[in-house]
Each structure stands twice: as C-alpha cells, then as structure tokens.
Amino acid sequence: MRTVKGLISRLDLELVAGEKAIGNDIKSVYIGDLLSWVMSHVKQKDVWITIQTNINVVAVAALGEVSCVIIAEGAEIEEITIKKAEQEDIPLLRSNLSAYDLAVEINKYLELK
C-alpha cells in the first residue's frame, strides 16, 4: 500500500501540518491551482499538488477527501492555512521541486513493485 508517510520519506518532503493523517493511502495525483476548477476534478485519495497556499486550499482538500496536499516550488504557506490543515487533519507537505517533477517522482513511487 502506498501511503503519505511513504511518500514523505521517499521524496524528502517537508511535513508542515496534519501529521496525524500521514497514514492515508494514495491512489493518484492531481495538479491544479485554480481552486474552483480543482473542486470539480480532484478525486478521493489523490495527492494534490498546487502552488496555492490560501486557507481555501484546505477546505477544497478536506471536501475532496484527498490524501494530502503538496505545495510545490517551496511556496510560502500562510499561517492560517497551516492551522486549518492541522485542525482538519489534512497532511500539508512542501517541496522545492516543481509540480511536474513531483508528479514524475510520485508516479515512480506508485509503480514500485
């Protein structure tokens, strides 16, 4: 089973919030920054990669039941967003990699035998 926890150690991701839920399993990847669009396309158990960091990212992630959110390219995360992610038990991760590079690496992880 592929989990957020496994992903964190494999991709060396920074765990910013939501440690309680890093046992979530992951199925696929979704990349998007326009939240109103993401709302209609993200799926359950997706790893969602975005550079948006406002508080509504957490609302969309929680409602969409994603397994975690990865903030790409080391974007600065608003304090209120971190707090909200902690409250909602949404693993909020960060990486200096681009969304593309992250997706490539996650794909490798998902295809591991």
């Binding site: 326009l34 948006q52 508080i55």
Partner: peptide
C-alpha cells in the same frame, strides 16, 4: 475574498 481565492 473566498470567491477570489477560489479563482472565480
């Protein structure tokens, strides 16, 4: 503000 952040 929320609607703006959602990118509408």
């Amino acid at each position: 503000k929320v609607l703006k952040q959602l990118g509408i």
